[in-house]
Amino acid sequence: MVIGEGKPIKDILFMIENYSKIILAGCRGCVTVCSAGGEKEVGILASALRLARQNEGKEIEIKEVSLERQCDPEYLEEIRSFVDEYEAILSIACGAGVQFLAETYKKTPIYPGINTNFIGVTQEQGVWTERCQSCGNCKLHLTGGICPITRCAKSLLNGPCGGSSDGKCEVNPETDCGWQMIYDRLKELGKLDQMEVIIPINDWTTSRDGGPRKIVREDLKL
């Protein structure tokens, strides 16, 4: 899922300082699961913002909503009937959701309440870690199911650099070396010969480097 993390409240207060009536829009998708932008976080953030504004003596009215998903057009319609009654929308969906709201409600200013960090997993309750950089050219079949582009700090494709030490990355002693993990996994699978194969220089056109990406499925279009 997409993993996000709340922005500092002071940054949010600065963004909305000139508004007295806003919509705070959460999303029931990924950011609910990673406790960054779901209904619960809407409640907490709204309460915190009200307290801060009361403290400043500048009242604010916050309409708390949580959309089914902010990345699908039909759910964005959930706020259409009342959006014009508010001065701005503070969205705590991922960056895609924030932008999609902005495209949909062109006259209403949209502000992001969270930072969108990565595509990852729930490592354990309260801990999320990155797994995928959506490069658009999956190589997991070559590397024992562990992504070198994401898990190696240098995105090296051909083995561990000289800074791999006791299974850890030179960049951060708490980070596992991606290539040590790949090596261990290939060994486990009896496929160490895969380490000997040179993975060729990457084609980044499928990654962000090729510009904003688009997928069209004619069979699904209406």
Binding site: Q54, N55, E56, G57, E59, I60, E61, I62, E64
Partner: peptide, 13 residues
């Protein structure tokens, strides 16, 4: 509490 010295507020849900 500092907020009690300031104005009252509206909220809605």
């Amino acid at each position: 509490s500092p907020i009690k010295r300031k104005s009252t507020v509206k909220g809605s849900k």
